[in-house]
Design a protein around this nucleic acid. Structure first.
Length: 600
RNA sequence: CGGGGUGUAGCGCAGCUUGGUAGCGCGUUUGGUUCGGGACCAAAAGGUCGGAGGUUCAAAUCCUCUCACCCCGACCA
């Protein structure tokens, strides 16, 4: 493949648009890959289009190898399709909607579980037709509350989504088998794309266990925090990361009092940081008490209103820690939501000033305490009345015997993990943190969609069985941006060869010189014959401009055709990654040299 | 959705406080000199100042409304 700069559209600029902040947004804009058309909506110019095609080609090859078949579903979906799963409600404003001339409403697909389920429902009836894996590469729409960082979070983006269908979880053809195959395929995809990435355990799906993994491109500018155990290799995102065994100083709830409990007037200061400053107490010596309301019991329905279970669930963590709702759910057995302030006040909670003392003498509250908040020593906490806090809080003295009643008080890991926490997989090891950009996510859906939409097959005993599903996504356009976030320098983008728009840039110093042009054409033909994609910079520009642009668009190898090298029958070879001047190689050897440089 | 901010030439910005013929840099076009890391000289093209309404002899500038976009937060398969 040979293209000429002068015949295509690569509008590079010296300055980036004022609204570009992240490296990928700035560089993709400046290098002429993308242009913003509206909030979270971008043109993909020829260079971007080539890179996107290379990424999706790799994705297609790996999906096909994993046994999936490509199809293409509509982007525009009748809103009625969402009736059974209620996702039009769950998605809320995130769902783009359009109205046609008859007034019928359609959604622009944010994912495609519903249409794929609908399709399969109408196409298969027997377990003999399973397992089945289908995928598509398609434009998705999400009306993000706040699009940002260029292609990293936008409203229209390109995604590969795959869905698998099974009669069983275990065994041949079961969900687990395909999930594992997809896991390997994803590793292959991102490895082949030349990206440095981490696979993390993510919030588990309805089946439980490690039923969900995220593929994160490691980049300092990433939105997500990743926690890793350097010893065991365990990695997880903040929502999911477990924390290893923690020692509770002085034994849970039994530390000695540090002094008389005394009340402090803290007017208008509900925040931990503000109160801490005011009372001259560090946040790690304060107790943070959050009030939740149980919504639904795990593994069954029926709310607190139904009678059984606690009416309130309160979570106590150290002031410098954050409560993790998922962990509260696991520890309590209840799906929870932050208690509505009005209701909580009516039930006696001084929101903003709640203390663990509140539980004494009550039987309608389940209290979860994080180990780091259960020790002895000095504690400050709320005073259970507005505008007041207390000092020298002591668990045993203030709360009393109910602490030992497991019906009402539980010690549990209920907070987000942070750097330095003990690893859950290796004794003595400490968790480290890094930043990442989520580019892939695989998870086990179970029967959520098939049950809601009535997708079932007859099994070998002629019994109707809900089809078990898996779901596997890759952000294709996001992967392109993530690669730039990870691979760039002060001069521009540095593409991994596998997803670079071209493999080689032939920079013609004198596009008017017949000998130069001839040498470039011969060279380009050799390169193309070796299977490499070539861009010839045939513009009548000054050398400085050409070199700057070459660095900016980040083609892995630049071959410069100029008088000096040509005089000795050679061409200047320079890898984008290398600093310095480059070296002269013989014209006849340049193609081999370039091909060799594409490995790795 | 809460807080903050910006809309003036393809891009980056000044002008607005104190109303009086719309400017600068980059880029673009033409001519010339240059020619291995974003050249120089000369000339030129290009804007209903986001939109609507109002005040005024006169509005980019003052007032009201509106739209769009950005940042922080909330939210985020």
């Amino acid at each position: 493949m040979i293209h000429r700069w002068g015949s295509t559209l690569i509008p590079t600029t010296r300055e980036a648009p004022a609204d570009a902040e992240s490296p990928s947004h700035i560089l993709l804009s400046r290098a002429g890959f993308i242009r913003k058309l509206g909030s979270g909506i971008y043109d993909y110019l020829p260079l971007a289009c080539r890179t996107l095609r290379k990424v999706s080609q790799i994705v297609r090859e790996e999906m096909d190898a994993a046994g999936a078949s490509e199809l293409l579903l509509p982007a525009m979906l009748p809103i009625e399709l969402y009736k059974d799963t209620r996702r039009d409600v769950d998605y809320g404003d995130l769902l783009f909607k359009v109205t046609d001339r008859k007034g019928a409403v359609s959604a622009l697909g944010p994912t495609h579980e519903e249409p794929i389920t609908e399709l399969v429902k109408g196409s298969i009836q027997s377990y003999k037709q399973l397992p089945l894996s289908l995928y598509q590469v398609q434009t998705k729409y999400r009306d993000e509350a706040r699009p940002r960082s260029g292609l990293l979070r936008c409203r229209e983006f390109i995604m590969k989504d795959a869905y698998s269908f099974h009669v069983s979880v275990e065994g041949a053809g079961g969900l687990n088998e395909v999930y594992d195959a997809m896991y390997r395929a994803y590793n292959n995809v991102f490895t082949r794309c030349g990206l440095d990435f981490t696979v993390v355990e993510a919030e588990s799906g309805p089946i439980g266990g490690s039923a969900s993994h995220e593929f994160m491109v490691n980049a300092a500018s990433g939105e997500d925090t990743i926690l890793k155990c350097p010893v065991s290799g365990y990695a997880a995102n903040v929502e999911k990361c477990e924390i290893g065994e923690r020692m509770v100083e002085g034994g849970a709830f039994n530390g000695a009092a540090t002094g008389e409990l005394s009340e402090v007037h803290t007017p208008g200061l509900p925040g931990i940081d503000e109160v801490g400053k005011f009372m001259k107490v560090k946040p790690d010596r304060m107790l943070k008490t959050i009030v939740f309301r149980p919504v639904e019991s795990v593994g069954g329905s029926g709310g607190a209103a139904a009678g059984s279970g606690p009416k309130w669930i309160i979570a106590v963590v150290r002031g410098d820690h954050d409560v993790n709702e998922g962990k509260v759910k696991t520890a309590s057995g209840w799906k929870v939501e932050l208690a509505p302030e009005k209701d909580a006040r009516a039930a006696g909670f001084a929101i903003g000033y709640v203390s663990p003392k509140i539980i004494a003498g009550r039987t309608d509250i389940l209290m979860l305490v994080d180990p780091d908040a259960a020790g002895g020593g000095f504690w400050a906490s709320g005073a259970d009345k507005a505008d007041h806090h207390v000092k020298h809080f002591n668990w045993r003295r203030e709360v009393g015997a109910i602490l030992d009643d497991s019906r009402y008080v539980k010690l549990a890991d209920i907070r987000n993990a942070i750097e330095g926490d003990p690893s859950p997989r290796a004794a003595g090891a400490k968790l480290t943190t890094g930043r990442g950009i989520e580019v892939g996510h695989i998870f086990k859906l179970g029967t959520k969609y098939s049950d809601a939409m009535g997708l079932s097959v007859l099994d070998d005993k002629q019994q109707k069985r809900s089809v078990i599903m898996g779901c596997y996504g890759i952000g294709v356009s996001r992967t392109m941006a993530a690669s730039v976030e990870q691979n760039h320098d002060e001069n521009g983008i540095i593409w991994p060869a596998a997803i670079a728009p071209y493999h080689v840039l032939v920079t013609l110093m004198k596009p008017d010189d017949a000998a130069h042009v001839q040498a470039a054409n011969k060279l380009a033909a050799d390169l193309a014959a070796a299977g490499l994609d070539v861009l010839i910079d045939d513009r009548d520009e000054r050398p400085g401009v050409k070199f700057k642009d070459a660095d900016l668009i980040g083609i892995p190898v630049r071959l410069t055709i100029g008088d000096k090298a040509l005089a000795e029958g050679g061409v200047e070879f320079k890898a984008r990654r290398d600093t310095g001047k480059g070296e002269v190689v013989k014209l006849g050897e340049a193609a081999d040299r370039c091909a060799a440089a594409m490995g790795g």
